[in-house]
Design a protein around this nucleic acid. Structure first.
Lengths: 220, 220
DNA sequence: CTTCCCTGTGTGACTTTGTCACAGACACTG
DNA sequence: CAGTGTCTGTGACAAAGTCACACAGGGAAG
């Protein structure tokens, strides 16, 4: 089966999967989704466990007046999602999932998921590990929001998302939604960075002129 | 063994425990802690899985300048903790745990914990369920902090913690630490509630005069 | 009882963040 | 090139956080 080979190649963790694990994975359903597709809504019932092999899905919260905040991402880096929470507790999704790129994923039905927990040591570890990562991320996110200046959070966000390059193509609104703040706040803060010659701004674009200063700011 | 009987009585979930689960629980170590004892520091290595049978432990984040926020509580209500995250990922505690009352708890060593996950269906479910609750709580906490007014969060906090009574004995600072805000903010907000005749304030004390209004406020 | 001291509360002035309303700039389309 | 979205800038104001300090109440010690 080609699909399973793809899975195994991408997930080192699954490479030496035990027999019951292989059986479960071989029944997984492969899906392809376009970018910006809603995977699940806030309040949806949760039916499958998802393993993303290609692309990223972002999970976000939203309030009445339209403000958003990104809670975490499901990425191809061996990481997978916890849909787990809802699957186990039988809860509804407390947030919304949207593909950010074209996404290839495998869906494991609820019954198989339970079986995986019971029978496959490897899968169980895999699932539990990603669960742990998520919780740790949520805990640090709470502290960021509660205690840190926007200036600092923005600087960190910019650096993390521009990676090794020097240009970030993103609107102020998108950045605000990521940080859970208002667009005007981001615009103003970016402007002060620009006035310090740390950045040059353009429509849908942020150019980095002084990453060192931004880095210092993100840690101060 | 008396201790195990106590455990079984208090945790319905464990009442019909399978054999491997019983074996593990019978090796658990019982500990008694006084109130206001630190259970673990931010940055500590995590060595045991904890099940609380009596009293409550609060888990909180703290920043440099002394502000705090309560992340969640470990209570006797059949709920148990996820120390899980660190145990599994081998991470350090990202937060601090403090007993709020006298606490009786059982400690399961890391090795037994791993064994529990592997061998006992019942314990696995128990652990996973509480994990799920925690994550759901963290997700909603993020959204509260990011989107909701202090007025609303404070009103909800007051009602939740006064329960059926009409007096809450707590300082403004303690309330602020719970909500992750500053003492002055709480003082001022309480004062406006008092001016509306929803509350009467005293030293270390909040008296409720109009719960209905507060309730409406907490939902508006 | 008085004084001292500690904790808890009140307040003003100021900064940062969030909200609202709207203007202007830019890019794409027809 | 005009028309129409989207994106950005800005001013005014409200809410929340910070800082500094005054004051009140309630023990404890003398």
């Amino acid at each position: 089966m080609n699909e399973q080979q793809q899975l195994f190649e991408r997930f080192p963790l699954l490479a030496d999967l035990d027999a019951p694990g292989q059986a479960i994975i071989s029944r997984a359903k492969k899906v392809q989704l376009p970018a910006n597709q809603i995977v699940f809504h806030q309040g949806d019932q949760c039916g499958h466990y998802i393993i993303v092999v290609e692309g990223t899905v972002k999970v976000l919260g939203r309030n009445e007046s339209g403000r958003e905040i990104v809670l975490y991402r499901i990425e191809q880096q061996g990481s997978c999602v916890l849909t787990t929470s809802c699957l186990l507790a039988g809860d509804l999704y407390p947030a919304e999932g949207i593909t950010e790129t074209k996404v290839t994923a495998f869906l494991i039905p609820q019954h198989d998921f339970q079986q995986a927990l019971t029978e496959s040591e490897t899968l169980r570890r895999f699932i539990f590990d990603s669960y742990g990562e998520r919780l740790a991320r949520m805990i640090s996110l709470v502290q960021e929001i509660a205690f840190e200046r926007i200036e600092k959070r923005l600087a960190r966000y910019l650096l993390e998302h521009v990676g090794a390059g020097f240009v970030l193509l993103r609107s102020h609104q998108e950045i605000a939604d990521e940080l859970g703040t208002a667009r005007e706040v981001v615009s103003r803060q970016l402007k002060t960075f620009e006035q310090k010659d740390w950045l040059a701004l353009g429509r849908n674009q942020v150019m980095f002129l002084n990453k060192t200063a931004l880095d210092t700011c993100s840690k101060g």
